[in-house]
């Protein structure tokens, strides 16, 4: 099947692995990721104010591109996913907002809210199916104890994101199990790592990230799994030293397509 794929700014630069393995694994799962020619950065945060129009136009254009092809819009980065999905929700539910957005756009660009936004995890769970993912595993990750870290953006606001139970999610744990590893469920997996506060206030970020990784340590996990470059950076730099891996990296490892780190 074919889907529209929105990589986002960081996947082109600091988080190339997240992008590279997303593509490789999709191929193995018979999913074609079609990247729109002229996507623009989502802006990194969704502004909840109803009168913010301009900052949401890039998301609307990406949504429009997917809806024109009658394809779901697939994201990997948690931030892109949150911004685009919340924008789509506003286009569907806030009439004043959607009509103002469409006034800004050229007529050909007008968008009716019909695209479906899927995170890569949802693509694996709902479109491909974890059973099929399991079939493609050539190198089961046996013996690994992995703590899923959702952060804030994948799950909240729950009524918009609709990915999983915002307080007790299982989608990443189910993936970890499908890949043959042991899923370690930890309570701070849906608490904020500190996000871009690390730029201005590293102490605050250290406090939050350390609290999360220390807690993960008490549960005896070997590593933390994330979908978000920001979370990975914060938890690694400001946490207590637990390794953090991208979910696509882990997938690639189980599928036997991960490149040798040393051969790079």
């Amino acid at each position: 099947m074919k889907v529209t794929y929105f990589p986002g700014c960081t996947l082109r630069t600091k988080a190339k692995d997240l992008d590279k393995y997303a593509r490789k694994c999709a191929e193995i799962l018979d999913v074609t990721l079609e990247e729109p020619d002229d996507w623009q950065c989502c802006g990194g945060v969704f502004t909840t104010s109803r009168d913010e129009i301009a900052t949401k136009l890039s998301s609307v254009r990406a949504l429009k591109a997917a809806s024109d092809k009658n394809q779901p819009l697939v994201t990997v980065c948690s931030t892109c996913h949150n911004v685009i999905k919340q924008t789509n929700y506003a286009m569907q539910n806030d009439e004043e907002f959607s009509s103002r957005v469409n006034n800004y756009l050229s007529k050909e660009e007008n968008y009716d809210g019909s695209a479906k936004v899927l995170h890569y995890l949802e693509l694996l769970r709902d479109t491909v199916g974890f059973d099929k993912v399991k079939e493609k595993v050539v190198k089961p990750l046996e013996g690994k104890k992995i703590a899923a870290y959702y952060g804030c953006l994948l799950l909240r606001p729950g009524k918009v994101m609709q990915m999983d139970d915002p307080e007790n999610p299982t989608i990443m744990e189910d993936l970890i199990r499908a890949l043959g590893a042991e899923a370690v469920v930890t309570p701070y997996r849906n608490e904020c790592c500190g996000s871009y506060i690390s730029l201005e206030n590293p102490e605050s970020c250290t406090k939050r990230s350390t609290k999360i990784t220390k807690n993960v340590e008490t549960y005896g996990a070997d590593m933390i799994l994330t979908a978000c470059p920001m979370c990975k950076y914060n938890l690694e730099k400001y946490g207590s030293g637990v390794p953090v891996v991208y979910l696509t990296e882990l997938l690639a490892e189980a599928f036997g397509v991960k490149e040798d780190e040393n051969a790079k």
Binding site: C77, S198, Y233
Partner: peptide, 9 residues
């Protein structure tokens, strides 16, 4: 290592 999104956000 700082991801672009930190500055953008």
């Amino acid at each position: 290592d700082l991801p672009q999104q930190a500055i953008v956000s």
